[in-house]
Design a protein around this nucleic acid. Sequence first.
DNA 1: ATCGGCTCGCGCAA
DNA 2: TGCGCGAAGCCGAT
Length: 449
Amino acid sequence: MDQRRVRILKPGKEKKGIIAYWMSRDQRADDNWALLFAQKMSLASHVPLVVIFCLVPHFLEATARQYLFMLKGLQEVETALATHNILFFLLTGSPEKTIPTFVKRFDVSFLVTDFDPLRIKQAWEKNVGEKISIPFREVDAHNVVPCWIASPKQEYGAHTLRPKIRRLLPEFLTPFPKLQKHPYSFRTQAQRNNWNQIFNGLTVDNTVPEVTWIKPGEAAAKKVLLDFLRSTLAGYGRLRNDPTRDGQSHLSPYLHFGQLSAQRVTLEVIRSNVSPAAEEAFLEELIVRRELADNFCFYNSSYDAFKGFPRWSQTTLNDHRKDSRVYSYTLKELENAQTHDDLWNAAQREMTVKGKMHGYVRMYWAKKILEWAETPEQALSVAIYLNDKYELDGRDPNGYAGIAWSIGGVHDRPWKEREIFGKIRYMNYRGMKSKFNVSGYIKKVIENK
DNA sequence: ATCGGCTCGCGCAA
DNA sequence: TGCGCGAAGCCGAT
């Protein structure tokens, strides 16, 4: 494995004792560079390997929809790890407490975690590091090109990140070694996790129910990937922006929870021998756009705030604060899809019912919130609130970057100045109608197809 | 249907 | 210092 994937969070020499991988963003047994790295270290030291996951109650306001998708995936991870002689611990509570306690209790000698650019994970890592005295490593198991290697700074747009990724891709797009059956067993009194008890004990928002059109877990993810390669990839470039067609990959929930590796998807797409145009269109989204979102969140800690917008955008939005808003809605009205705009209502309804709004409509949806909100700050917080509450892949850098693009011109350029938006790119109903069959989309959402 | 202008600033060439 | 060009568009002219 390329050592540039690994960052040293805490240096130090390894003592005797087991090695632990604190799994967080990359919730899978296969194709996981953080797990593979932890196993390599354990094999070199001839010690057992364990995997820990910290279940945080009320994580960033996540709902039953997201918790159940995640936990069912983790249940599968436990089984897969067990066949490799690796124990899986599900701890409940804040990682800042549970991880150091675990390290002490089981004499962990070396700690590995996976990379996540969001503030909360970065803070957890910092606080865990301060409370332990063993070496601590972070592995970027999510991106094909590790975030800090792709670029050392916040990029201005896809066009500045793209050439950097392209140059490094041959170095990082390598096949995955197989996880080995671990030869060193961990003897402990720890009992297997009681999943029913975990599901029933959840004290999260139950008003947002599970969805059934997409199944959680690594096995389901691989099946969806196969279906995509077989039937959708060839037309991806042509159909992905038409929400009345089934032209998307549907992989984002799996990628978000790390139930599927973007690098695995890339390898399979290339192996599929699809046309170069379709391959390029899809890899642009899968790699360049996703890794740009990680870059944005990692290097801009205000990724969900007005002050995280580029200067020109803050200036122009400030110039238009006093513009009169023609429409205005309460959060409840928005949440219940009760606006005058039937396309917007359909988009909102698609999200609340399916847990996934079509990518192209998402831009329109967020820009309308800016148009109707009293301030850009309110627009931002409402869009993030709704996205994180209903989307299966809420709380993802992709979501924050997408909303910042729509409302704050992040990774975009200025356009013709107008009311409220200032120089932020404008989108309207007329434009949507010229791009796809709006009434067909609305009908499709209402019929829940 | 198609085209240019809108408007900012990076990044590279010179 | 100059210049080309960019994540998803709009608008008006032709």
